[in-house]
């Protein structure tokens, strides 16, 4: 009994080996794809890496905290717009609200994107987290849609058509227009984010959050103010999505209200569920699988969702814990 139940070292070792292999593959990916003549794959991998950050941030509140937020795209899109708006002002030379000049330095736009999204999450979270269950789903969706329509109507920043960012931001003088450099920049930030997540979910804060998902009332009876913990997690998740959005605007050199749309929130949610809710790397796996399926299937038919839908249903029905759960079982571990 002890052997199967103890989350023991052989399993950990196997998983660590798998992780090292994946990391090595990520590091040599741009060189390998160029050598093999599939250079565009680097760009595709960049998109996956950036999206994985957003999915992982949603997973913090959805998977670990049990808060089913259906408005995560709000932070993803606002993070994107911070970069877009700063760039637009840098080009036009006009100060934002007459206060702050625009910039296209990633060392400024990225922290600013995180800050704006953190504050937005604090505000929206403080209100939304007063509710729970279906009401919470609806209120987060409503806030996200409000922000979506706000940006649709903001003609100064392109309205419905969005904003073009002609040149990627610079990063401490480093020109990241080169796809390989931008890939490594995104990968570096994603690794930092996932490292932070790993520390966070195994810290006391993470344990309390997981306890809250299992039973909020039990946590309250123990003397823990669950609202504060949930709000802190919500802010961190908002900042993660903002980071991802800021990178995505740089990647695509374009930002539009589509990034804020509820379909985007839904896609992030699908990634989390597909990969494995409440697991550290599940969202990354979900991002890989969903974006790959999307691009492969879209080559055959424009109605690729017809194939994705049943696939998702099968994963939910038969692979408890998503694809990460399946991998865990194959390596001999148990999953939540």
């Amino acid at each position: 009994m002890d052997e199967t139940c103890d989350i023991a070292s052989p399993v950990k070792r196997r998983r660590a080996a798998l992780l090292v292999a994946v990391l090595a593959a990520l590091l040599i990916l741009p060189f390998a794809t160029q050598a093999l003549g599939y250079g565009s794959l680097t760009s595709f991998a960049t998109r996956i890496v950036i999206t994985a950050i957003a999915a992982s941030s949603l997973n913090l509140i959805l998977g670990y905290g049990g808060m089913i937020s259906f408005g995560h795209a709000a932070f993803y899109g606002v993070g994107g717009y911070v970069v877009g708006i700063l760039y637009a002002h840098a080009r036009s030379g006009e100060a934002i609200w007459g206060l702050m000049p625009g910039t296209s330095d990633l060392a400024v736009t990225l922290p600013l994107g995180l800050l704006v999204c953190g504050l937005l999450a604090l505000l929206l979270g403080a209100i939304s987290l007063r509710t729970s269950g279906v009401q919470f789903i609806m209120i987060t969706l409503a806030f996200a849609q409000m922000i979506y329509f706000l940006f649709v109507s903001l003609k100064a920043y392109g309205g419905d058509d969005g904003l073009s960012v002609r040149r990627r931001n610079e990063f401490f003088g480093l020109d990241v227009r080169d796809d390989t450099r931008f890939y490594f920049l995104s990968l570096g930030l994603a690794l930092l984010w996932f490292g932070f997540m790993a520390r966070l979910v195994n810290s006391r804060f993470g344990l309390v959050l997981r306890g809250i998902r299992q039973s909020e009332r039990r946590m309250a009876v123990i003397g823990i103010s669950t609202y504060r913990y949930k709000l802190a997690a919500y802010v961190i998740a908002g900042m993660g999505a903002g980071l991802s959005g800021a990178l995505m605007t740089n990647y695509a050199r374009f930002v539009s209200p589509d990034m804020l749309h509820w379909v985007q929130s839904g896609e992030l949610m699908i990634m989390v569920i597909l990969g494995g809710v409440g697991t550290l790397l599940g969202p990354a796996i979900g991002a890989v699988v969903l974006l790959s399926l999307e691009s492969v299937l879209a080559a055959y038919t424009e109605h690729w969702q017809v194939i994705l839908g049943p696939f998702l249903v099968l994963v939910i029905l038969f692979w408890r814990g998503g694809i990460n759960g399946l991998i865990s079982r194959l390596t001999g571990a148990r999953c939540e």
Binding site: S215, M219, I224
Partner: peptide, 20 residues
């Protein structure tokens, strides 16, 4: 009893000791 089922014994105890 109402323990947290999918936290380990150690995690159940540590989570509880937050802001005591």
């Amino acid at each position: 009893r109402q323990i947290f089922p999918t936290l380990t014994v150690h995690e159940n105890l540590v989570a509880t000791a937050a802001n005591r």
